[in-house]
Write a protein that binds this DNA or RNA. Structure first.
Length: 574
RNA sequence: CGGGGCGUAGCGUAGUGGCUAGCGCGCCUGCUUUGGGAGCAGGAGACCGUGGGUUCGAAUCCCUCCGCCCCGACCA
């Protein structure tokens, strides 16, 4: 029983000045965590209890799924990361250090290498597979910008699992098992979430999905189709490539369009000077980029914005991507800023990509590659052709769903889990092979599955709080029942403690506010701030043998006879 | 790493060149109070982020560094 008279806890009346998101403010105010440095926190008793509760739920579901827990050090030697090339690849986000002999070490940002090596050293037969193992471990990443309290820290706790299979079919099975385990885990954690397609990214591998907890403070943007259920991270959303008949468009026509370097000014001149009755969506934007030193042009409709994150995510193999700058125009005099068009791209040796909305057969008003000139009826497939389609436009609310064409919605979310089919990258790099039934050596295929443990705790607080405090789900709360004893008499305190003991004997965790000196108001405020789901108040009505029962989430209040409390709660919470 | 903001007691803050750095919360002592962050009285607690400079005089003005927060870039 947690007794507030002696609990190592001090709640704060004011929000900490350096916190801006709800979970950060409330976890600090309610005495769960304290800041130590940017993205680094200490955990007070209440925080430790809540965190252990999250871990308990995760462990429980992992074990139920047949995955086995292992544990690695956070302090790791350089060698395995050198072999996978990540000592270099991970860049400045890796915490590196040296021991007294000058040997290089790192604080693990993630443990693919270690898991791979562990399996390699124990197993060598296909008969040992499939295998899924996991750990709950502190990770270290020197984030360029830690933010939002515990949501993006430089030290954080992660549950990471890895699956090992002989072939792709096996990997798919392991992947689905993890997917199912994650669904039940997040359900128990009381989180609302969507499973969305994600970009596999630099990790390679084919299939990847993210578990996103919708929240305005989230860093991820995703699209959701309310009609068919399609869901994807915006970076991973793939729109349809349409096709039109190359039909009525007249031959290209050169137009004199003085002083029209922007879409807006172009549309105005077209409508005034040429009575064209066009809008921005009839014009074509040519986004010039430098990809690893080469000039590329990306075509999008004039009424849309480019989303460089999506472009980058979809340009395979490009390491460095940046926008064209004035210096680049100076070096490429054939490209006239504000008057670029795709029809001369071949001649200029520029790679051309189009957003799928620039369909083959469509015609456009676009630059004539001459200052103060534009062209119209420039037709895709006739007057220019592209080297490929690439997702480039910024996705807007109401855009058509790639699978059913109804309007999509856009939302923000916190990434609480990520599952993906890694494939053979690490197994190859670290030579993890097993003998198959023919006695032939086979490279093992792997899956990788992560849950941000500390982040999940923050996401719960983000999704489940009100103006006065946190509202924990039953399994995560420091205690299920928060007992408040009030008044100057001894009786409420005696009865409160007696009932507390009874509840604990029935397996219901209890926190009791047995502070004699604190006023009732303070106790109520603290109870609401701390956020245990059920509150019992021993006070005024005790003279009539009644105790007040409150549900934190709904605010519902009722009176229960002293003698019936325990059985009532056992029934409610059992 | 680019842009912006901020560092004054455990927390929240006032103080923009001039007396002993002020207030609220919290903390300690005493009395009163106990169903919505109680009242009165007394008290402890601050190298005003750091180092330098300007000045008769600096929390206040200038420079350096450090730290924290926000936006962006980045983020297996």
């Amino acid at each position: 029983m947690l007794k507030m008279s002696s609990l190592f806890l001090r709640t704060l009346r004011d929000d900490p000045s350096d916190a801006s998101v709800a979970s950060h403010k409330l976890l600090v105010r309610a005495g769960y965590i304290r800041p130590i440095a940017a993205g680094i926190f200490s955990w007070l008793p209440l925080g430790v209890i809540a965190l252990r509760n999250v871990e308990r739920v995760i462990r429980d579901e992992m074990d139920k799924a047949g995955f086995q827990e292992v544990h690695f050090p956070a302090l790791l030697p350089k060698d395995p990361y050198e072999r996978s090339n990540r000592w270099e690849e991970y860049g400045p986000a890796l915490f590196r250090l040296q021991d007294r002999k000058g040997s290089d070490y790192l604080l693990g940002p993630t443990h693919e290498e270690m898991f791979t090596l562990m399996v390699k050293s124990e197993y060598s037969s296909y008969k040992d597979l499939p295998l899924s193992i996991y750990q709950i471990q502190t990770k270290y990443r020197d984030e360029a910008r830690p933010r939002s309290g515990i949501i993006r820290g430089r030290e954080f706790i992660m549950k990471d699992s890895y699956s090992f299979d002989l072939d792709d079919a096996g990997l798919e099975v392991s992947y689905q098992k993890h997917r199912a385990a994650y669904i039940s885990t997040f359900d128990r954690l009381g989180l609302k979430f969507n499973i969305v397609s994600a970009v596999s990214g630099a990790m390679g591998g084919s299939k990847s999905e993210e578990f996103l907890a919708p929240s305005p403070t989230g860093e991820d943007t995703y699209v959701l189709c309310p009609k068919c259920g399609y869901a994807a991270n915006v970076e991973a959303m793939v729109s349809k490539v349409g096709k039109k008949e190359i039909a009525k468009a007249p031959e290209m026509e050169l137009l004199d369009t003085p002083d029209t370097p922007t879409i807006e000014s172009l549309v105005a001149v077209m409508n005034q000077k040429y009575q064209a009755n066009v809008s921005a969506s009839d014009t074509l934007k040519n986004i010039l980029l430098v990809a690893d030193g080469a000039v590329i042009s990306i075509l999008i409709p004039g009424d849309r914005q480019v989303d460089l994150k999506r472009v980058e995510a979809n340009l395979a193999g490009v390491k460095e991507l940046r926008l064209f700058e004035d210096g680049d125009f100076a070096k490429n005099p054939a490209l006239v800023k504000g008057y670029v068009g795709p029809q001369d791209a071949k001649k200029l040796g520029i790679k051309l990509y189009a957003d799928p909305s620039v369909v083959v057969g469509s015609h456009w008003i676009t630059g004539a590659n001459t200052k103060n000139k534009h062209m119209r009826y420039v037709t895709h497939g006739r007057d220019f052709s592209v080297d490929g389609f690439i997702e480039a436009v910024e996705i807007n609310q109401g855009d058509p769903c790639p699978s059913c064409d109804s309007p999509i919605i856009i939302d923000r979310a916190i990434e609480i889990g990520h599952i993906f089919q890694l494939g053979r990258k690490y197994a190859q790099a670290l030579d993890l092979t097993v003998l198959d039934s023919q006695g032939k050596s086979q490279v093992v295929t792997m899956g990788s599955y992560g849950i941000g443990v500390t982040r999940a705790l923050a996401a719960i607080a983000e999704q489940s709080h009100d103006e006065i405090g946190i509202i924990w789900p039953d399994e995560i709360a420091p205690a299920k029942v928060h007992i408040v004893a009030t008044g100057r008499e001894d009786e409420p305190f005696i009865q409160a403690e007696r009932i507390g003991k009874e509840l604990e004997a029935k397996g219901i965790s209890v926190m009791i506010d047995d502070r004699r000196e604190a006023s009732p108001g303070v106790k109520f405020k603290d109870a609401e701030l701390i956020g245990n789901p059920y509150i019992l108040i021993f006070g005024k009505s005790l003279a009539q043998g009644q105790v007040e029962f409150r549900i934190r989430r709904s605010g519902e209040k009722s009176e229960i006879a002293l003698g019936e409390i325990t059985s009532y709660l056992v029934k409610l919470l059992g």
